[in-house]
Design a protein around this nucleic acid. Sequence first.
DNA 1: TGAACGATTGAAGAAGTGTTCAGATAAAGG
DNA 2: CCTTTATCTGAACACTTCTTCAATCGTTCA
Lengths: 131, 131
Amino acid sequence: MAESLDRLRSLVEDELGECCDADVEARLDELDDLEAGTDAGQVSERVEVFSALANDTRYRIVQLLAAAESDLCVCELTPMLDVSDSAISHALSSLTDAGLVARRKEGKWRYYEATDRAERLLAAVEPEESV
Amino acid sequence: MAESLDRLRSLVEDELGECCDADVEARLDELDDLEAGTDAGQVSERVEVFSALANDTRYRIVQLLAAAESDLCVCELTPMLDVSDSAISHALSSLTDAGLVARRKEGKWRYYEATDRAERLLAAVEPEESV
DNA sequence: TGAACGATTGAAGAAGTGTTCAGATAAAGG
DNA sequence: CCTTTATCTGAACACTTCTTCAATCGTTCA
């Protein structure tokens, strides 16, 4: 660890070229702060959220739920997604775990809707021009 | 296809219960519009973006680049991420393809920075309270 | 020119993921 | 009750992904 720090120091010295030691120290401090600002638990929680959207079936479900005026049940989703009910059920379960979808039980049916977090993410992924 | 439509119709009739045909038609139209609103190319482009963030190494890189005041080179990232240079290079390449990171070449080094799209996504994934 | 160094690439094996199938639950209605 | 219907669950297997290693590229500088 101390060794890799020395290595980083000399890289930074190289990178900053002919400038003073104070600048090198400042850069090293900045890098140090960056490293401190990441918490493993938070990272994995957020990676899980992105993973939930990293699949055609799940992404489309969220997109459909966000676009729908009312919430939808599994049997309404099925005809729009060419995979089995089972696959949709698995997908909805991952999405619920990730906090992207909320379920409501009503008699024989379960209705799903997109959460705010999901809607924010869908908006954020749109390319520049449309923002 | 016509068959599954009939099935959907009877499901919707069940769901809406004792109400009139017009309501059933309206619901079917709504479902139809939803289905029409999704384009395969767009879906896969966005799924690719979410996939890029669906991995610890890549997520942390984007987080570091977004938090950094200036852009960073691979050799500065390496000590903060306990994987090989090679892994980081592969990661940066996926991120660049997904439009989440931009590269700048300068002499011996390549500097990377997070794009606006990446910053929007990082903001959007934060949980409710912090918005 | 050639040695050193930062960065990238491709191949390969281990690990992880997605879908389906078969079977299980739970609510509704005869 | 017993059946039907909507949804869920777990196991299995094909498929994808992630990381590492080894080799390569491109720039700098002696």
